[in-house]
Design a protein around this nucleic acid. Structure first.
Lengths: 340, 340
DNA sequence: GTTGTCTTTTGAACCGGTTTAAGAAAGTGC
DNA sequence: GCACTTTCTTAAACCGGTTCAAAAGACAAC
C-alpha cells in the first residue's frame, strides 16, 4: 500500500510542470500534441486519478449529488421504486466520476437538517427531489439554500428547477378502458397520500377518464402504505354496492388489497378485479399476478441524474419528458363475476 | 446567497489567527478558555461550518463511508432490509458530520469498479459490506486496496475487518420448536442462495435443530428471489409426501410461497404453515400475516456505522454482537390439518 | 532586573489540485 | 540577424482547512 500518486508525480514522470498536467487533462487548448501524449502515458503508467477533495477545493464543487429520503416509518417501507431508480442514477454518475450521497431520515425535521448540512458542508452540488408534495417546502428550502436540484414531477408551486415528467394520463386511460371493456361499471380508486402530488394527479385523471367512459367511481384516500391500502379495501368491500374492480395508486397497496380479498374469502379475479400502478416486479409474485402501470424507475434515475448534472454545469436546464407509462396486463383483472 | 464564511472569517471576527481557530475547534489543549469562548461565539455568529473538501484534503480523510449494493436485477428487488439499514447508518453519520456514498450497480464487474473508483478518488474512508458470499472476493479486494471495512456477518475466509454479527441460531430454534409444538413433523426449508453466507448458516442450523427435534426436513435451494421461492414451493407441493410447514430463508420468498399456495387452492394456514425469516413489515400485509424471525435492520445499520467509524479512527476494532433474532408470531402458522 | 518555565498564539508550510500572468521557445517577415 | 507574433510551458497564487516550530507573554524564582 504505497502512497497514491499525485499530480506532482505525473508531472515529474512526464517531465513537465504540474500546471501543465492539469491543463492537458482538462482538455484545455494550447498544450502541444506531443506533450499531451507524454502526460497521458504518465497518467496511465502511474494509474493516477485526481483526488476529489483537492479538485473540489480548487473548483468549489463537490462532484456529488445529494438524495435525501424521508423514511416516514409507516409509509415508506422499501418502495421497490428506489433500488432501480438509484441504479439508473449510478449509471450516469459512474461515467462522470461523480458520486451519490444518500441520507435516509425518519422525519421532516431531520430531513430539513440534512438538506442544510449537505449544503453548508459543501458536500453536494445539487439534490434529487422525489415524491413531490403539494406546495412542497423542499423546493423553497433548496432554492433558499442556493442549491441546485431537479424534481421528479413538476411541482404545483413556483419552482426554479428543471422537472422530469412522465405522462401517466395515457396509462390511466388504457387501464380504465381495459376495465370498461371487461364489463366493469363500478370502479374504485384507492388514492395515495393527498399531500403528494402524484397521488392527486392520478386521482384527477382517473375521475376524468371514468366520467368519459361512463364508469362510476368510488374514492378512498390513504397514505400509500399497504396498511392503509388494506383498510381502504375493507371499507370498499363493506359497502352495500361493492365495486367490481379496484384501482390502487401503487403496487404495495394493491398487494395488500389482494390479501384482504383473500382473507374475506373472495376468489380473484372472479369476484373482484384489482390493479396497481407505479409498477414493480413484486406484483409478479402474488396471486393473482398484478396488472399494473409500468414506471421504468431506471429511466427516471438516468434522466434525473443527467438533467441535474447539466443544470449544475450550465446553470440552466429544461424539463425532461419521459415516455408515457404503459399498461402491464397480468392476471388480476377479469370480467366481473366471471367463472373462477 | 453570499459567499459562505471560511475559517479565515471566523479568525478575523474572533481577533485571532486561523490556526488557532482550528486548534480550538478541534478541541486541542493549550487554547485559553477565554479565547475559546470568543472563537465559539464567532462561529455561532457567522454560522460557519468547515468545508468537508478542505478539511479532507488536509487530513487525508473523506469523512464518508461507502456502500455498494449489487442489484443483480433478479435477486435484489428492493429488499425491505435496506431502507431501514440505511436509516440506522444515517443516524450515526449525521451526528458525526459524515456522509454515506451509495452505489447501486448491476453486476460484479461494475461492483469491483465501484470499490476501486471510490478508493482511488479518495471518496470514502471505508466500506460497509453486506450480503456476504462464501469466500467473498470483496473482502480481499477491499483489503488489497488498503481500505477499511466492516462486514455484516463474519466471513468464512480470512478477514482483517471487524464483523457485526447476530445470533440467528436461537431464533431458528424458537421457530422450529414452535412448529414442532404445533404438531408438524415434515418441515421444508427453502434455502437462499448457496453462495451467500447467511443462506447456508441458516440452513445448517435448521438441519441441526430439526434433527434434535426429530423433524424430517426437505431442502430446496433458491437464489433468494420471490420467483425462485415460488418455484421451490411448487416443487415442494408436487411431492407425494408434502411438507406440512415451509420455512423460507427470507420474507419475500415466503410471500411468494403464500401466493403459490393460494393459487393451488390451499387454505392457509390450515393446509400449510409458512414462515419467513429476516423479518420485515411487508409480511404484516399479506394474508395470512407472516410469522417470521425479526431482524432489526436499523440496529444493524447503527452498529455497522459505529463500528466502521471507530475502526477508521483507531485503526483497530473488535467484532460486535447484536441481540439475538427473535420470533414474531403472526398468523401463517397453525397445527397441520387444523380446521380452516 | 535577569533568567527560566509554562502557557498561549502566530506564521508558515502543507494537503493536491486549478488558474493565470509572465516567460521561453519557435516561427514569420523583412 | 532582428523584431514581432504565436505557441507552448512554467511558476506562483489560490481554494480552506490542519499542523507544528518558533515567537510572544505571563509568571515565578533568584
Amino acid at each position: 500500500m504505497t502512497r497514491q500518486p499525485t499530480i506532482e508525480d505525473v508531472a515529474r514522470t512526464a517531465g513537465v510542470s504540474k500546471g501543465l498536467v492539469s491543463l492537458a487533462l482538462n482538455g484545455r487548448p494550447g498544450v502541444a500534441q506531443e506533450t499531451r501524449k507524454r502526460i497521458d502515458a504518465a497518467v496511465a503508467e502511474l494509474g493516477w486519478r485526481p483526488s476529489a477533495n483537492a479538485r473540489g477545493l480548487a473548483t468549489k464543487r463537490a462532484y456529488s449529488l445529494g438524495f435525501i429520503v424521508r423514511r416516514d416509518p409507516i409509509t415508506f417501507q422499501a418502495d421497490p421504486f428506489f433500488a432501480s431508480f438509484l441504479a439508473g442514477v449510478e449509471s450516469v454518475l459512474a461515467e462522470r466520476d461523480q458520486v451519490l450521497v444518500l441520507s435516509v431520515v425518519p422525519d421532516v425535521e431531520r430531513e430539513f437538517e440534512a438538506y442544510r448540512r449537505l449544503t453548508s458542508d459543501r458536500r453536494v452540488d445539487g439534490f434529487l427531489i422525489t415524491d413531490l408534495l403539494q406546495d412542497d417546502p423542499r423546493v423553497r428550502l433548496v432554492a433558499d439554500l442556493g442549491q441546485r436540484a431537479v424534481t421528479l414531477g413538476r411541482p404545483d408551486s413556483e419552482s426554479p428547477f428543471p422537472a422530469i415528467v412522465r405522462d401517466y394520463d395515457a396509462g390511466i386511460d388504457e387501464l380504465l378502458t381495459h376495465l370498461a371493456e371487461l364489463g366493469h361499471r363500478r370502479v374504485a380508486h384507492v388514492a395515495g397520500d393527498e399531500r403528494m402530488q402524484h397521488a392527486t394527479t392520478r386521482l384527477t385523471r382517473h375521475l376524468e377518464v371514468a366520467a368519459r367512459l361512463g364508469l362510476q367511481t368510488i374514492v378512498e384516500h390513504t397514505d400509500f402504505s399497504p396498511e392503509s391500502g388494506a383498510a381502504a379495501t375493507h371499507r370498499l368491500l363493506d359497502r352495500s354496492e361493492r365495486p367490481t374492480a379496484i384501482v390502487y395508486a401503487n403496487d404495495p397497496m394493491a398487494i395488500a388489497g389482494i390479501a384482504v380479498a383473500h382473507e374475506r374469502g373472495l376468489t380473484l379475479p372472479r369476484d373482484l378485479s384489482i390493479t396497481g400502478m407505479d409498477g414493480s416486479d413484486t406484483g409478479r409474485f402474488v396471486y393473482p399476478a398484478l396488472t399494473t402501470l409500468d414506471n421504468d424507475p431506471v429511466g427516471w434515475g438516468r434522466a434525473a441524474a443527467t438533467a441535474l448534472l447539466s443544470y449544475i454545469e450550465n446553470g440552466d436546464g429544461d424539463d425532461v419528458t419521459l415516455p408515457a407509462a404503459a399498461l402491464i396486463l397480468r392476471s388480476s383483472t377479469a370480467p366481473p363475476g366471471s367463472p373462477g
